[in-house]
Design a protein around this nucleic acid. Sequence first.
DNA 1: CTGAAAGCGCTAACAC
DNA 2: GTGTTAGCGCTTTCAG
Lengths: 327, 327
Amino acid sequence: MADVARLAGVSTSTVSRALRRAESVSPALRARVHEAVAALGYVPNSMAGGLAAARTRTVGVIVPSLVNSFFAATLDAMTERLAPRGYQIMLGNSAYSPETEAALVNSFLSWSPAAIVLTGQAHARATMQRLLGAGIPIVEMWELGENALDSLVGFSHRAVGRLAARHLLDRGRRRIAFVGAALDEDRRAAQRSAGFAEVVREQLGRPAVVVALPQRASAATGGLALAELLARHPDVDGVAFSNDAMALGGLFECQRRGIGVPADLALVGFGDLDFAAWSTPALSTIRPPRREIGLAVADHLLQRFDDPHAGPTTIDVGFELVPRASS
Amino acid sequence: MADVARLAGVSTSTVSRALRRAESVSPALRARVHEAVAALGYVPNSMAGGLAAARTRTVGVIVPSLVNSFFAATLDAMTERLAPRGYQIMLGNSAYSPETEAALVNSFLSWSPAAIVLTGQAHARATMQRLLGAGIPIVEMWELGENALDSLVGFSHRAVGRLAARHLLDRGRRRIAFVGAALDEDRRAAQRSAGFAEVVREQLGRPAVVVALPQRASAATGGLALAELLARHPDVDGVAFSNDAMALGGLFECQRRGIGVPADLALVGFGDLDFAAWSTPALSTIRPPRREIGLAVADHLLQRFDDPHAGPTTIDVGFELVPRASS
DNA sequence: CTGAAAGCGCTAACAC
DNA sequence: GTGTTAGCGCTTTCAG
């Protein structure tokens, strides 16, 4: 930076200002500084800057899984929006463990990030305290409940479960069930299951049939769980799956057994993954705005970075029923 | 850190040493330091450390896409291995653009990362020069060719394409074709396609039929591309898809048209994604070690971090044919 | 609008 | 094995 200052014939403070808040430097000097930067190929040292300013252009993001294409799409959209503005993403993978999340938050904080983004609203108590004390924007995404830590960008999974049940009911199905996986680990899946059960109770006056395998959701567990459901309730005529991967597995299981979809069994998934529109029959599903969540988080953050007065918000990004041939 | 030093009755250098290279401090002092750290809830400031040491426990990783579950699985495995050792991952998404990659490398470098991991071996010339000049380990992953920048962890996509062709030939198919997408963008897919074409030329003495849509690979493009192939070559009896998502779309297209798989048409994919084993019929595919790549990259890096004498290597992680019912 | 000067919190020679 | 000391490369008051 000293070299740049020398070449531009200014002080290092002016270089710093020209690079950081361009409007606080006269146009002439600003141009000279940028010329010198280009000529020298100068790249500022982020750590020196971060140390001096006590904050960096870094945002820590914690997701419970990358293999899950929900969060991958969100992350993808987030990087797309944040990178052009010079913000780096520090990636953390909590593997659905609050303890791992706590450790990640701690190490993120040692980088004076501009913000931290978490998935969901369930965190260790210590995590929340640390986060609150950091004095930076915190965003919880992919969930929408009470008592937000700070900002919230998501939708109600309970409402998704309710919609799935109502959709099957609308299609004239009465012997309906919910098929999920790892419900103790994946709070949001559990909320969808609970919403489904609510509607069954309200409309049919009986407890809902819920089959959940301990393993993670996948095509494999989808097929297996459906098999288990059919063993226990051979007369089932409608199934809501915790996500599209499981629904795909369920669909294949039906094909294997010669069960007509939707003639014998109506299927509805969650996610609207790429293949859902192209399967035979095409899969009815509920679409969460996977990318939009990432964009909304990024835009909100950028706004708060630019305007220190901007406070936290709660954004309900909603979701959408996509009825197709499977139901 | 001064507080910790005071509480432990030592100097800050001792605290630093105890935290960094435990063996260089007597056990007694080390214990006292850790006690003080715990009592005070001290978290070192990574930027101050990084600035002073001119390197950080950060590794920059650039992938061309997160939505693609290949790289997501690799990243997942990488975080799993690196996080417990205190390394943070800075995530970059190049979106298959060398220019974006160059920009990401630049901003990563401003953080004095411990290493940089890139996907593939095709980079802008300037990117390579900068990387080489950084004096840190560079790993290129998911490809295996000549002229590695530094370390290389991957496998030959050409060999994958050759294997796919040979497999269809082994199954007695002769009118075989390759179905891909975005081949100009995705070098590795293009290499698979080229390998496939080589074998067709060698064994059948004719140029290979290759259908490639301009859009990205997905179930949608898989179905569409297969439809196009069938329009042009109705007598085709074996198809290798650029990846499993496309193969799934192709399988659904066959179901829609009443084409028997494998009776009329043999299908082979690439990736061995979760659903491949569970589709009806189960999908033959070639499995790249998605997670193993991430683990190998992380282990290699950790080794080089620990031992400054350790040099670059090339690791061929291989791949595996998984023959199933679709071929 | 610009420059001087004082650190930000830590690491790494270098002595002891 | 441990302490002293001099920065690492920037940002940010504070003057002017």
